[in-house]
Design a binder for these strands. Structure first.
Lengths: 195, 195
DNA sequence: AGCGTTGGCCAACTGTTGTTGGCCAACCCG
DNA sequence: CGGGTTGGCCAACAACAGTTGGCCAACGCT
């Protein structure tokens, strides 16, 4: 049996699934490229080749569309599974590939810098996804918030200069260079004794 | 003589200077707090207790107001005047006090993340103000762009997490902690041999 | 075949925004 | 004192946004 009775809230395949997906994809692109305010529903609908009112019907509001379009799972690696002195490099590499392939993160960062609601969403991601990792790898769990903040400031700063502001010098850095330079800093923030 | 014949383009004191200044101050606050799009001329005018049309008369357009409101001079210290291994700490300290006292920088960062024009302005600041400093302190001037990009990613990232996103863990860091943690990283990016 | 359901579009409404032009009072200078 | 200049406000405009409701065609089940 291909589909075993379908789970409780059975989404059930709808005939409009293709359209829904097209809207989400267009929304992700527009939000990443233009930020929340300038990514208009009309433009997203045009990209998806449907009428703006469809967006409202399927996602309720612009806010609802944004929520549906950018669901972020950083899928951070289990740093406690590898040697403690490799955590920095692993984190940097993971973030880099995340940003390179996933425009959703650019959208979250743009919107986070744009509105109070967006900033709160970014804070949630930090708290729910990066902080736990830091707590598991830090020597003293009490220092985890500070250490995670340092790591976040560096990694988000890299994303900001490279993918949002597109400062040429930051764009030109190769992935290898970035890892070689940043990994020691991140490693130090995670595990080095408080200076 | 208090005013010696006034310089060439003699601005000449106008009776409306107080109003002009009030507009600029309100604009800086609003742009820093809300970003470009959500900082409406009407709201700025309300803060300055004048009519929205006055803003247009004095600054031509919203874009003109923004340009006039955020003129950024980082006033970076002359790092070549102090011991080479102190440049990192000096830079971090300088940036911190800049951000703490100057809301203009928050405005520039917000708008930089919001619009293409804003991003370009941020790139200009990087190129005209931070890059030259890196060129003067770096061992090999050819590596200056890459090293300056690394420094910028960390310092702008700190500003992003602390002053824009307001991630609690980043806000709670004391200035002393930040300097102690970041200075070695920045120093390494500036002067350490390529890894 | 018949009819309810679904997917889709069109046209319109409402609120807000940047922007403009005209009007009035206060000021300044001779 | 009197006319020109300046500072300021009011009211309106046009564009554009998110959002809504009604209409039509295609589909699918019985």
């Amino acid at each position: 049996m291909p589909t075993p009775a379908a789970p409780p809230p059975a989404p059930a395949a709808r005939r409009s699934d293709a359209t829904r997906a097209a809207i989400l994809e267009a929304a992700r692109e527009r939000f990443a490229a233009d930020g929340y305010d300038r990514a208009t529903i009309r433009a997203i609908a045009r990209d998806a080749r449907i009428d703006p009112s469809m967006v409202m019907r399927y996602y309720g509001s612009k806010e609802g569309l944004f929520t549906a379009a950018v669901s972020v799972d950083l899928a951070l690696p289990d740093v406690s599974a590898l040697p403690r002195d490799r955590a920095g490099e692993a984190l940097v590499r993971h973030f880099l590939s995340l940003w390179e392939e996933n425009e959703v993160l650019t959208a979250v960062l743009r919107v986070g810098a744009q509105s109070a609601a967006g900033a709160e969403r970014t804070r949630d991601i930090f708290r729910d996804q990066l902080l736990p990792v830091a707590q598991r790898v830090c020597p003293d769990p009490e220092q985890a918030p500070a250490r995670a903040a340092l790591v976040a400031s560096h990694l988000l700063g890299l994303a900001l200069t490279r993918y949002v502001l597109r400062i040429p010098s930051a764009v030109d850095l190769s992935e290898g260079e970035i890892v070689a330079w940043l990994a020691p800093s991140v490693q130090r923030y995670l595990t080095a004794p408080h200076p």
